[in-house]
Design a binder for these strands. Structure first.
Lengths: 250, 250
DNA sequence: CAGTGGTCTAGACCACAGA
DNA sequence: CTGTGGTCTAGACCACTGT
């Protein structure tokens, strides 16, 4: 166990998930747990911080920490590819490229991807399925420098993110997401199997490497009912937490 | 400045916002900044952690921290009431209660609010405006123990959250949000000024006190175009950070 | 009041990035 | 290789909670 604070966080998470600390219950104090695990208070605080960042527990100066929720938080605390997210939920992800073409970046695209206007980009239209049900239509724009690697992925590649990581070591670690609702257009309706004009959840996102270099920007439209996005929040701007560095899994 | 790490975080945020550290640039090292501010490395890491949690910077073991974005993150890192959020964006929030009635909690409501089925709850239907434009229709269910205080708020109360805090010291500090898209129903269409069936962004949320006690659960429907939700993400589950405890502003 | 979490210090060792 | 961030320790003081 090289990282003690992660190990402790896991134990606490498990204890909460198993109901040993029900919602509303006070947790043991930092000193108690530090002594029990034979670590310093700082290490223990780091473990607690992780759980706080996940929205599982809350803290107030002077009082013991309190369990806020027993269900592990899903999608949005952690950046995940569609395939990763699907597998985490026990579903089988699928995908199919419907269209692929290179083009010159518009000003808007160049801005989002930090390119010069007119630089080459790659447009991909891709349908994504969950257990063979179409749930998501992606219109993705990749920066030109990734185009070759993306084109080499099979049309029904399950995880392009994984493919890019494996073939060229390209790793996406940060994302910015904008959520709103739109009416399904003709293409949306046909591919997602809904009526034209019916409501879709739209997520416009831009993903970057650990160095902050933008890789792709995408307009993703989700069929309602199939997917819900969850966010946990707190007034205390952002709780302390742990950090595995920005590296791909081995 | 009692909290040194906050002060340092503010300075760094300002430097980034002013473009002194452009996107993609490497920031000074921990040791350099610690020395410059006359604090220990731990304190400095806390300041960096705050910015990391806001998605402004990223870090990787062995390399200096990198600026990911220069625009301060908006709504979703921090739990905010509609009024707070509106004012932060320079808009004028408004509200009007359309309907208010007490009822017995359904099983679903009781579950969300941690009440016994049949306990009393208060249903409020409220329209929210931004610069006098209707943008949001709220269907809120308050736990019975808050009903009196909620009913005493004026029908056009700008911020019920603020009213509850001021009158009975009730403070909401954690939230869980589920986002999806729905078609506007008859009431939605009438109050938001859109056509029936047009897409709305729905946010179902539950808010709790610092102790984890649920206060309200709500079905909020946003007129598209008026509001966008933003989330910043990272693979490293959650960056280190921290700030002020779960206390109401004075 | 005693106990708790929030802040801070001054060290240390290690894994990793980049030249 | 040097410098960096990630992890950890063992202290300390303070602000706050709850009784």
């Amino acid at each position: 166990m090289t990282r003690r604070h992660e190990h402790i966080a896991d134990e606490l998470r498990r204890a909460i998930a198993e109901g040993r600390h029900p919602v509303g219950a006070a947790l043991p104090s930092e000193s108690e747990l530090a002594a029990a695990h034979g670590v310093s208070r700082g290490t223990l605080r780091q473990a607690f911080g992780t759980l706080q960042a996940e929205g599982l527990i809350g803290s107030r100066q002077g009082a013991r920490r309190v369990v806020l929720s027993t269900t592990p938080s899903q999608s949005f605390t952690e950046l995940r590819s569609f395939a990763q997210w699907a597998r985490a939920g026990g579903r089988t992800p699928g995908g199919q490229v419907l269209d692929s073409r290179r083009a010159a970046a518009t000003d808007a695209e160049a801005g989002l991807l930090q390119l010069a206007p007119g630089d080459e980009v790659l447009h991909i239209l891709r349908i994504r399925t969950l257990d063979d049900d179409p749930v998501l239509l992606e219109r993705t724009v990749y920066a030109g420098w990734t185009a070759e690697a993306v084109e080499q992925a099979p049309a029904d590649c399950e995880s392009v993110t994984q493919h890019l990581q494996d073939t060229v070591g390209l790793f996406m670690s940060h994302g910015e997401h904008h959520l709103d609702a739109v009416a399904a257009g003709t293409v949306d309706a046909r591919e997602l199997g809904v009526r034209r004009g019916s409501p879709l959840l739209r997520v416009r996102r831009t993903t970057t490497t650990p160095e902050g270099r933008p890789v792709e920007t995408s307009d993703d439209r989700y069929r309602p009912g199939s997917v819900v996005f969850t966010v946990r929040n707190s007034v205390q701007a952002n709780p302390l937490a742990r950090t595995t560095p920005d590296r791909p899994a081995p």
